[in-house]
């Protein structure tokens, strides 16, 4: 009996406390409120023994020093050493492909005697047979300069776009200049039947004959070329 009384009084106190708590108007009851308030930051104890260091985060360990951030210098500017690399490489390539500069002079747009659109051009190759035709267009692109030749072979229009500075091209000659300066840079209208020049074989053969007479000394070479140009019929059969 002696124990019952304090129990009852305790429950009574508890009930009253709860009632009191509920009666409080604005106060919120939450677990957070227990821990609210500024937390004071504690310093680590001085001379913390080394065996406890592993429990600390790395950045807080006493032996931690600030990482040094290395600042690299900018790499040297390529642009300052070589301002126009494409031009440089073009020059190097031209020096290899056209050491004498004769081909470049022939296809120089400023050269009045150079090859122009409308001229009849004869190109001979180191491999294969020569090709001649009217220059329909010349594309000036440095070492990639090309000329579009059109001819009629066995009455079939044939066009060939030849790279002027290709190492396979043995020679490029103007067989006949255009009678009148064309007013266009690209003579694509020559494809139309109305303007088609037909075969230029006769003109080229005449030019080769004249050249053989003028040079005199080398009729054999010219003759061989001529034969090759004229047919390919003969050249082809001979090869086979």
């Amino acid at each position: 009996m002696a124990q019952a009384l304090p129990f009852r009084s305790a429950t009574c106190c508890c009930r009253r406390a709860v009632k009191f708590a509920w009666s409080l108007p604005a106060q919120k009851r939450s677990m957070l409120s227990l821990h609210a308030g500024p937390v004071e930051r504690l310093d680590f104890p001085p001379q913390l023994p080394e065996q406890y260091w592993s429990q600390l985060p790395k950045r807080m360990r006493p032996d931690q020093v600030k990482r040094e951030i290395k600042i690299h210098e900018n790499p040297p500017s390529e642009w300052k050493t070589c301002k126009e690399p494409v031009k440089l490489i073009d020059q190097q390539q031209m020096a290899i492909l056209d050491p004498t500069g004769a081909r470049a002079r022939l296809f120089d747009p400023k050269n009045p005697d150079g090859a122009k659109a409308g001229d009849i051009i004869l190109a001979t190759f180191k491999t294969g047979e020569p090709f001649s035709g009217v220059a329909m267009s010349i594309k000036w692109r440095g070492p990639h300069t090309s000329v579009l030749l059109r001819n009629q072979l066995t009455r079939v229009g044939t066009e060939m776009d030849i790279k002027v500075f290709s190492p396979l091209v043995q020679s490029m000659e103007v067989a006949q200049k255009a009678a009148k300066r064309p007013r266009r840079a690209r003579l694509y209208f020559l494809r139309k039947p109305k303007h088609d020049m037909g075969s230029v074989q006769k003109i080229v053969d005449g030019y080769l004959r004249q050249r053989a007479i003028l040079t005199g000394g080398s009729p054999g070479g010219a003759k061989r070329q001529q034969g090759g140009v004229r047919g390919g019929v003969r050249g082809g059969t001979r090869r086979r």
Partner: peptide, 12 residues
Amino acid sequence: KDGSYVKFDDNA
């Protein structure tokens, strides 16, 4: 292969 182009006026 040498970069040149060839084209004919018809298909045959």
